[in-house]
Amino acid sequence: MSRTLELVCPAGTPSALTAAVEAGADAVYFGFRDRTNARNFPGLNFSAAEAAQAAALCRDRGVRPMIAINTFAAAGQEHIWRQAVDTAARVGVGAIIVADIGVAAYAARTYPDLRLHLSVQAAAANPEAVAYYARLFNVQRVVLPRVFTVDDIRMVTASQPGVEVEVFVLGGLCVMAEGRCTLSSYATGRSPNRDGVCSPAEDVRYEQEGDVLVSRLAGYTINRFGPGEDAGYPTLCKGRFEARGRASYLFEDPVSLDATALLPDLAAAGVTAIKVEGRQRGKAYVAAVVGNLRRAIDSLANGGPPGVAVSAAGFTEGGRTTEGAYKRGWR
């Protein structure tokens, strides 16, 4: 293989960021402690001062820091998102990751030298969409939505050679096109696009009914677990529902994405960087999966196999994984 994949890793906290850097990340992405980022969870994310320290630590270690400002600015409150862009520019990051074209326009106009990446939340799902963001905002890299087969990715990289492509290989899997899903706000009033949260924890209830554990989101039953079943978090699209008189995981089984085995194919398709989802995960998880992916990438670069699937680290949802949309049968 002629080129090495860049490993882009999540950090929800300064200690997770340190763990990612030490485990061999090439780049680390994080967000501010507000609704400007799509992991706006209690106890996560970075103040402006922590972001400055994190960026400095990354630069010292030769790691590229990236800040995700990837929710959609609320009308009348655009200043919150502009301030996030200002702060990111001030602390000196390698890139900001944006989704909203209003925010992208502000960043491109105000900081023309600040590298712009397009968030998966913008769901640029075809080469023309990629070209749109490159033309209007000089976006340098696009994080692809989880709708593409490996062949589809090749179609994007071949037709837009001036734009780098980053894809998710590990972590939580959105079934729906990202940034275009309001299932969460339909049920709870809060959504990824506006609030940076999906299926928010404060709306979650677990209730024991006899020997069945029921998970509910804002009063809607998302799943019922019998004795011995693993009770996962009630993310709406991962629930069990009834249709055609049958209960099933209608949208997606309780699985995590693990495309480690596809790394050679992704590299051959022209992918520049691979991304790990999981800013909500702890430093132990980050250290383990980043370390495994580092070894997989290095093994490939030396002509070897990608090695053991990262899911073997035992951190995945329900212990089961999928290669998701990268394989055509998923659709």
């Binding site: 299932l183 949309a325 998923w330 659709r331």
Partner: peptide, 19 residues
Amino acid sequence: PLAISARCAHARAHGLAKD
């Protein structure tokens, strides 16, 4: 309209895929 997906849940409910 709440969501759109590359996957077809309608087909999936019938034991089929989008193709």
